[in-house]
Simulated scan of single mutants.
Amino acid sequence: MLLQERDGAVLTVTLNLPEKRNPISDNDVVDALCAAMEAADKDISIGCVILTGAGSAFSSGGDLKQMAPDVGSLRSAKSVQTRRNYKYGIQRLPLLFQALEVPVVAAVNGHAIGAGCDLACMCDIRVASDNAKFAESFVKLGIIPGDGGAWLLPRIVGFSKATELALTGEMIDAAEALRIGLVSEVVAPEELIATARRIADKIAANPPHAVRMTKRLLREGQTAELKNILEMSAAMQALAHATADNDEAINAFMEKRAPKFTGE
């Protein structure tokens, strides 16, 4: 259900259930995706992760065929059990992605619908092919964003646009996603992975500890007060100044040569 390919400092993770349009609602998929991301986060030699989907979709979100009570991993005939299914199932993904320090670039190759749209929003950077489609479509099924979309989407596109997308459930194309800031770049389908890889390579070329601490600060900055971010920044800067990569960057600049970072 997942493919992983390591090339240098970049790991590409591919949702690989193309015949089902890469749903992420089942616990097996959640477990596999969490395990892959946690392993990448622990490995300082991985400078960036690319997340994409196999086939025509990035992710269809929930598998509608598994939405009957006690059929799939989410809905139960007992409401209290449905709550637990979400909490210990798909809701692990937004909590994990928010805690990750390794940067993640979403290469949205096709439809990103419902939880699939939210999965893209969990990533740090989103690039899309020009045939990608996005929809925060839960309301059309008579349900609500159960995986953090109400927190994620307004922080990316703003409250008004997020509200419009969530309450209408309407689908938007890649051009509109670019216009509202949901994605940062739109390219031809055949250029998508290369574009994501270009961004990932630029990130991975930098000192890994500085990259990961910078990402941590950006994530914390979404909710923390300025004084707390400054306190965290001072502590992290002390760590950054103590790295060999910081010394290498300064020496390389003074000697007018390319730096060679080691993660030390």
Rank of each mutant, 00 (worst) to 15 (best):
V29Q: 03
K133M: 15
M122R: 03
R75A: 10
A115W: 08
R126P: 00
G158T: 02
A39S: 09
A177Y: 09
A106F: 07
D63R: 10
S60T: 09
H209I: 07
N16I: 06
G114C: 03
D124F: 00
V211A: 07
K87L: 13
S59K: 07
P23Q: 01
I229T: 06
L141M: 13
G146N: 03
L217M: 15
S137K: 13
K215I: 02
A36N: 02
I143N: 05
V104T: 08
I193T: 06
S233V: 00
A36I: 00
G149D: 07
A252H: 11
A106R: 05
R198I: 09
A120Y: 01
P207R: 03
D130K: 15
E136A: 14
A107D: 03
E164P: 02
R92E: 12
A54V: 01
N85T: 05
E225W: 11
K202N: 12
E19H: 15
P23S: 01
K161T: 08
L226M: 07
R21M: 10
R198C: 02
R21P: 00
E38C: 02
V104E: 06
S184H: 06
V186T: 05
I125E: 05
A162Q: 08
L167S: 14
G149W: 02
A107R: 12
E225K: 11
A252R: 12
N246K: 14
A175T: 08
A57C: 04
Q237G: 14
L15M: 07
N16V: 03
S25V: 04
L230D: 04
N246G: 01
K140I: 10
G61A: 02
I46W: 03
M1I: 05
M236N: 12
P69N: 14
K215G: 06
S233C: 09
H111D: 14
E136K: 12
M236W: 04
A40R: 02
N109C: 08
M171Y: 05
L141N: 12
F253W: 07
N251K: 14
R6N: 01
L93S: 12
T262E: 13
K260Q: 06
K42T: 04
D173S: 00
N27G: 00
P23I: 04
S73I: 04
E255N: 11
K140P: 01
R257Q: 13
S25D: 14
G169Y: 06
G47E: 10
I50R: 10
D118N: 15
D31S: 08
N251W: 00
P145W: 01
P23R: 02
R75K: 11
I113E: 05
R219E: 15
F138C: 09
L165S: 10
G181D: 04
F261C: 01
E19T: 12
T223V: 15
V187G: 02
A9C: 03
R197I: 09
G169T: 02
L152R: 12
T223H: 11
A188Q: 13
C34E: 07
V10A: 09
L33P: 05
K87R: 12
T243V: 04
A150N: 09
A120S: 12
M122Q: 08
N131E: 11
G146Y: 06
A194Q: 11
C121S: 04
V105F: 05
A249E: 14
L74V: 09
V187E: 08
P208V: 10
V102N: 06
F253E: 14
D173F: 08
R197T: 15
A242C: 10
K256G: 10
G148C: 06
T195V: 03
A57Y: 05
K227C: 03
